[in-house]
Design a protein around this nucleic acid. Structure first.
Length: 426
RNA sequence: GGAGGGAUGGCUGAGCGGCCGAAAGCGACGGUCUUGAAAACCGUUGACCAUUAACGUGGUCCGUGGGUUCGAAUCCCACUCCCUCCGCCA
């Protein structure tokens, strides 16, 4: 959610910022008229309540003194009716106002390039040289089955398209990557490891911005109407929902490995081959809760923490700042890390690091208390550190050898019992 | 799944249907004292909304949602969560 102050008192600026994201700003006009109606209604109903409270107190006093309070009782009865009708109207307005508000995306930071889509994204830097091959590099959807470590067909048999079975060294490599990333973030970057629920309620998803707008992207779990998490960002960011944190405790840094579940509605025909776009995938997530002063520095740091994984695995990548039109709903600024995939001759997203400023904190009521001051909204950040399946892909494609084997990056070998190479089966 | 107990401010914990936004303690903050700190003592200390140039003023909130009543933290109903015991279970 955006601050009502911004919407109300700087509505022209809000309009321009929302428009830059491709958002239909007629909703803002609707919001403004609802807000005005709410406020004038509040003044009216609060005055009626004041009169009712005064009369009620008078009744108590008269009765204690043994007097006759029937005049006051009649007055209260009349006020009550007026309050009821006004209140029910106000509740309608409030509900509509909320619904409108929950539909507004975050506003972009001034440093974000303006543009309609990914074409306007700004490349910040490239790290690492793409390796030159003296043979035609294969894509992971060929390498994986040939090595006997990825089984797309049996994944489809078990659950349908976009599900994959990891087998043997594939499963082992995925597990090694998870441990490697968690150890790095907890050991070197100061994050606390969490193992949260993989199923959450609506409140949590509303807190981080997936609901109410993006319900069709989620898997719903029937008996209780809960949802499978689309990212660990949801349970981890909501950890401190409706809490007032001590300022000294900030910044909070959490890392969590979880599987992620996405319905991928509307992405038919996109990335249908291989492991790029799955209904279920593993991710190690980074989340920070900071003060407003800290959050943009924290975004640089957090992005650096995710980059460190790629650097240690010696995978070439580039850093992109997403444009206003390409950013996610809750983000004020986002860096995407794109890893080089030689099998596809392209950079592909492997991490997305965002500063959500106070947007999620306002929805989830995550606050902190400055020393001796009033509670304030915190800022929240999240980033993948990294998407594990895509990291595995990157290793297969970048470290493949002419004989069909795949070398293991040095940094990962301790996690694989010292193994240096995955050989084709047979 | 069955039986019982509970949910009050940052925390612990009182609270005859009106005088309760709520005792007390802890914590936090400010002050006295001290070279400084601790201790002691004094004082301040919930959140949200509206309104006001401001000082303020008003409204709402005692798990959530309904109900009874002129009036509810207090009475009634439903739900959620937590605890104890029994059953079942990885």
């Amino acid at each position: 959610m955006l601050s009502r102050d911004l919407l109300r008192n700087e509505s022209d600026r809000a309009r321009a910022l929302l428009a830059s994201r491709g958002f239909d700003v007629t909703a803002l006009d609707q919001w403004l008229s609802l807000d005005a109606e709410r406020r004038s209604g509040l003044v009216e109903v609060e005055d009626l309540k004041r009169r009712r409270n005064e009369s009620s107190k008078a009744i108590g006093k008269i009765k204690r003194e043994g007097g006759d309070a029937s005049a006051q009782i009649a007055e209260v009865g009349e006020l009550k009716g007026q309050i009821e009708t006004l209140t029910s109207r106000l509740e309608e307005v409030e509900t509509e106002l909320m619904q409108t508000e929950l539909g507004f995306p975050n506003v972009p930071d001034a440093s974000v390039p303006e543009g309609e889509d990914e074409a306007a994204n700004r490349e910040e830097r490239r790290v690492g040289e793409p390796r030159s091959f003296d043979f035609q590099p294969q894509a992971h959807w060929d390498l994986g089955p040939e090595l006997g470590i990825l089984d797309f067909e049996r994944g489809a048999k078990l659950a349908g398209a976009r599900f994959t079975v990891y087998s043997g060294m594939g499963a082992r490599l995925e597990r090694a990557l998870i441990n490697f990333m968690l150890d790095l973030h907890t050991g070197e970057h100061g994050y606390t490891e969490l193992l949260p629920p993989f199923i959450v309620n609506r409140d949590a998803l509303e807190g981080t911005g997936q609901l109410p707008k993006f319900e069709e992207d989620l898997f719903r779990v029937e008996p209780k109407g809960l949802y499978l998490i689309p990212t660990a960002e949801v349970p981890v960011t909501n950890l401190h929902r409706e809490e007032i944190l001590d300022e000294e405790a900030l910044p909070l840094r959490y890392t969590a490995f979880t599987p992620c579940f996405r319905a991928e509605a509307g992405s038919h025909g996109k990335d249908v081959r291989g492991l790029i776009r799955q209904h279920q995938f593993n991710k190690v997530e980074l989340v920070q809760v900071t003060t407003p002063e800290q959050s943009f520095d924290a975004l640089e740091q957090l992005t650096g923490h995710a980059e460190k994984v790629l650097q240690m695995l010696e995978l070439p990548y580039r850093v992109m700042t997403l444009s206003t039109g390409d950013m996610g709903f809750s983000a004020a600024k986002t860096y995407d890390l794109e890893v080089w995939l030689p099998g596809q001759d392209a950079y592909r997203e492997i991490s997305s690091c965002s500063n959500c400023t106070d947007f999620q904190a306002r929805r989830a009521k995550i606050r902190y208390r400055p020393k001796g001051g009033k509670p304030q909204l915190a800022h929240t950040l999240n980033g993948s550190g990294l998407a594990v399946g895509r990291t595995l892909i990157a290793i297969l494609e970048n470290y493949q050898q002419a004989d069909g084997s795949v070398e293991i990056p040095e940094a990962l070998r301790p996690y694989l019992g010292g193994l240096s190479k995955i050989e084709p089966k047979g």
